[in-house]
């Protein structure tokens, strides 16, 4: 129920925001054509508006209503930039790349980040804290696209160990062959690292701080008094309890990961949704922007839903009903 409300509110914002940008896609197209030396009759321009299914003279709520009706029919519209390809086709083509990038980045940052944070708190010593805490704070506040830039300049442009752009090299044939898979991995390493390193800093700090808090709880003192091993206390007592807030943290951070992914994909010219959205926004491609925002919204809502389910499964005090 709450999820549906959030979804509709997000749709409304997604719908309104692009229309607040100055100009509109047809106008951009017309200006381009005139600049190229074409003369366009008012009828031709009217025809273009009709073709894209966009009528700026209708009130915005009517436009929104039309959009929802089309959406419920599964129609996301036609892209202006990649005309005549449909938005659903474009997204379906790009989405797997982004899912690949983001899910691996989240997995390789959250899982080790959580464990590092857990043991950092378990073995609290002043030296570790005074060096690693500021370092991790520093890392987690680096913008991931900037890190991507550095990686690109250093590892791809200067050292030439990694490719400069794309998802796989054009010398391999896409399909289930080893050369293609290796090429894909080779191309994905730098973007994944840019996303993962920054995200991991945040996960480590959050887990460590939660752990330090839980370690001060009574039941941890009881566990010590019971003569349990330090390992068991850190894992089963403090760790299991500190894990719960870190799952919430994971869900919250999904928005930042997707946001950062737009810039990272753009920098690496990676053929995913993020790069597509940058192209769509700069070309004022309303339908495409909307379609992509819709996917982002769904992705973040699904991430939150999964976090809630995971939470209910791990914490006996939380039940789904």
């Amino acid at each position: 129920m709450l999820l549906t409300g959030t979804f509709v509110a997000a749709l409304l914002i997604d719908f309104t925001l692009p229309r607040l940008m100055p100009g509109n896609p047809v106008q951009t197209e017309v200006t381009n054509l005139i600049a190229a030396g074409f003369t366009l009759s008012p009828e031709a321009i009217k025809g273009m508006y009709a073709l894209y299914g966009y009528n700026p003279n209708l009130p915005i709520y009517v436009q929104f209503y039309d959009y929802i009706v089309q959406l419920l029919h599964g129609n996301l519209g036609v892209s202006y930039i990649f005309f005549p390809q449909s938005v659903s086709y474009l997204i379906a083509q790009r989405l797997p790349w982004t899912i690949f990038l983001v899910s691996i980045a989240v997995a390789v940052s959250w899982i080790p980040g959580t464990f590092i944070g857990m043991f950092a708190a378990g073995k609290r010593n002043a030296k570790f804290d005074s060096i690693f805490t500021p370092l991790l704070n520093f890392i987690s506040s680096i913008p991931n696209f900037w890190l991507g830039f550095l990686f690109l300049i250093f590892f791809a442009a200067d050292l030439k160990i990694f490719p400069l752009f794309g998802a796989y090299s054009n010398t391999v044939t896409p399909g289930a062959n080893l050369a293609f898979i290796l090429s894909v991995l080779h191309h994905a390493i730098l973007p994944i690292l840019s996303l993962a390193i920054v995200a991991m800093g945040g996960y480590v700090i959050h887990m460590r701080n939660t752990m330090v808090g839980v370690m001060g709880d009574d039941f941890v003192l009881v566990a010590r008094a019971k003569g349990l091993s330090n390992r068991r206390i850190v894992r089963t007592y403090a760790g299991a309890n500190a894990l719960l807030p870190n799952i919430t943290m994971l869900a919250i951070s999904m928005g930042a990961v997707f946001g950062g992914n737009i810039l990272v994909e753009t920098i690496f010219t990676y053929p995913g949704i993020g790069y597509l959205s940058a192209v769509a926004v700069s070309g004022e491609d309303y339908s495409l922007i909307l379609g992509i925002f819709l996917i982002f919204t769904i992705a973040i809502l699904v991430a939150n839903l999964m976090a809630d389910l995971l939470y209910a499964w791990l914490d006996p005090r939380v039940s789904l009903i």
């Binding site: 709880d217 039941f219 003192l221 003569g227 007592y237 309890n241």
Partner: peptide, 23 residues
């Protein structure tokens, strides 16, 4: 570690929080 609980056990203040909530 071996001595704790085997020789001296403790009933703590505030039983509410003496147990690990997820166990």
């Amino acid at each position: 570690r071996r001595f704790r609980w085997a020789s001296v056990a403790m009933v703590f203040q505030g039983a509410m929080n003496a147990f690990n909530p997820v166990m």
